[in-house]
């Protein structure tokens, strides 16, 4: 029997259409504890549109690297890419988002906390963007050892860590009822050939157990694609929204995750 539930999502990337769909989905599931792990802008169109939706739903937000960069007026997104082509598209995206985010919203991003801690299902939970130690650290499923997760749990003194940043959702339970969860991103698909995006639902169930569900979210991706084209965003980005395959940010992927995609 479920006693308590919370929804965690990240990587909104200005996808206000998916955000609206998510808020409707969680409302229908009867969830009111909502957390967003940051990166509100990037990639998508009309960055200001996500802010009123988040505020109205009283979503507790953690600051991502994009939010930090926009809020502090930094010259780049600090996404952590190391390939010239990936950085080329990151720069395009950042320039568009920086130009189109209001001063008021940038101030709001600047003041977001880099992490949030809470108690859920009798466990200490840490919500962060990349990792507990670094906002733009990529924690991929295939390159994150259990030993490293043990260290993160030990150093941060928690039982559950939820992060995003990579855009690919995954979940691993370690002995002692501890969980690492990457909630994925609702801003763009997970390089799996599906147009759906993903978020995480955590449930406290009888007996002190914690259940984790990675949930697919369908939304009107055609509307988003049309808005992206109208804003003259790169066709490569639109292709990802329409096909579910990543066309950029590829070089940072480890072998296993890269092999799953089309490109």
């Amino acid at each position: 029997m479920i006693q308590e539930r919370m929804a965690v999502f990240g990587g909104v990337y200005s996808n206000h259409v998916a955000l609206a769909a998510l808020l409707a989905d969680v409302r229908q599931r009867g969830m009111s504890q909502l957390y967003c792990l940051g990166d509100l802008g990037a990639f998508g169109p009309h960055p200001n549109r996500v802010f009123p939706l988040l505020r109205a739903a009283q979503v507790a937000v953690v600051q991502g690297n994009y939010d930090h960069s926009l809020g502090h007026g930094l010259p780049d997104c600090r996404c952590g890419y190391t390939d010239a082509r990936d950085n080329y598209f990151a720069r395009l995206s950042y320039a568009y988002t920086f130009h189109n985010t209001s001063a008021e919203n940038k101030r709001w991003l600047k003041d977001l906390p880099p992490e949030r801690r809470l108690t859920f299902a009798g466990r200490q939970v840490l919500l962060c963007h990349g990792s507990p130690r670094q906002t733009n650290e990529f924690l991929w499923e295939s390159t994150t050892s259990n030993a490293f997760l043990e260290r993160l749990f030990r150093d941060s003194g928690v039982d559950v860590i939820v992060a995003t940043h990579t855009g690919l959702p995954w979940h691993r339970e370690l002995p002692g009822g501890r969980h690492f969860i990457n909630c994925g991103a609702i801003g763009r698909p997970a390089n799996d050939g599906r147009t759906a995006v993903w978020y995480a639902v955590l449930s406290a169930v009888a007996g002190g157990r914690l259940e984790v569900e990675i949930v697919p979210l369908e939304y009107d991706y055609r509307q988003l694609a049309a808005e992206m084209r109208a804003e003259q965003l790169p066709e490569e980005f639109v292709t990802t929204i329409e096909t579910g395959w990543w066309t950029t940010c590829l070089e940072i992927l480890p072998a296993r995750e890269r092999a799953r995609g089309k490109y």
């Binding site: 007026g73 930094l74 010259p75 780049d76 600090r78 952590g80 890419y81 190391t82 390939d83 010239a84 950085n87 720069r91 950042y94 320039a95 920086f98 130009h99």
Partner: peptide, 12 residues
């Protein structure tokens, strides 16, 4: 091509 090793440029 490791961009973070380069000096930061101007604001977009």
């Amino acid at each position: 091509g490791l961009e973070t090793a380069r000096p930061p440029g101007n604001l977009p």
